[in-house]
Amino acid sequence: MSERSENGNLRKSYTLLGADKKFYKSETPGTYGGHKKTKVYGRMDCPAALRGIAKGGYVKERVFFADEQTAIEAVFRPCAACLPEKYRIWKTLQAGQ
């Protein structure tokens, strides 16, 4: 998405999801992507997410995060496909609860 700056020039803006689960505009793109319904976050080049995007169904539920910590604070879990070690740690912690 683009919007005009104070001097009238076009500048790109991105809609990111914050730790408070509210959307906000940013001049910097997100570094992690997520899926709203499944509450999963992962890398922007995640093969599972790219497959879903190619099929067309994933795009409507896609969200973006400024960083990994924000995704975690928004209560999203790591993707098993692109973040397998972090997913294993998350799964182990879940089993211990």
Rank of each mutant, 00 (worst) to 15 (best):
L10G: 05
A74Y: 01
V40F: 02
V63W: 03
N9C: 01
I72H: 07
S2M: 11
S2G: 06
N9E: 06
S5M: 07
S5C: 05
A54T: 14
R62P: 00
P78H: 06
R62E: 10
V63K: 05
N9T: 06
T92M: 09
Y41G: 00
T38S: 13
G52S: 11
D45R: 01
T38F: 10
G52V: 13
C82P: 08
L83E: 09
I72M: 12
L16T: 06
Y14A: 08
L17P: 03
P84I: 06
R4A: 04
D67V: 08
K86T: 07
A74M: 03
F76Y: 15
V63E: 03
I53Q: 06
E27S: 10
S13M: 14
K55E: 12
M1A: 05
R88A: 07
E85P: 09
R51C: 02
Y41L: 00
L17Y: 04
R77A: 06
P84W: 04
A80G: 02
K25Y: 03
Q69F: 10
E3C: 08
S26E: 04
V59M: 14
G52D: 10
K22A: 07
K37I: 15
D20P: 03
S26N: 04
E6G: 00
C82V: 11
G18N: 11
A66N: 02
I53E: 06
V63D: 00
I89L: 14
D20T: 13
K12A: 07
V40M: 05
I89F: 11
A74C: 06
K39W: 05
R88D: 06
A66P: 00
A48P: 05
G8A: 01
A74P: 09
Y87S: 03
S5L: 09
V75E: 15
D20H: 08
T70S: 11
K86S: 07
C46E: 03
R4W: 00
K37E: 14
G34K: 01
G34V: 04
T15M: 14
K91S: 02
L83W: 07
C79K: 12
L16S: 03
S5G: 08
A49Q: 03
N7K: 13
F23K: 15
N9Q: 07
T31I: 09
C46H: 08
D67W: 08
N9I: 02
P47V: 08
E73K: 13
A81C: 12
K25W: 01
Y24M: 07
A66C: 00
K12G: 00
Y32W: 04
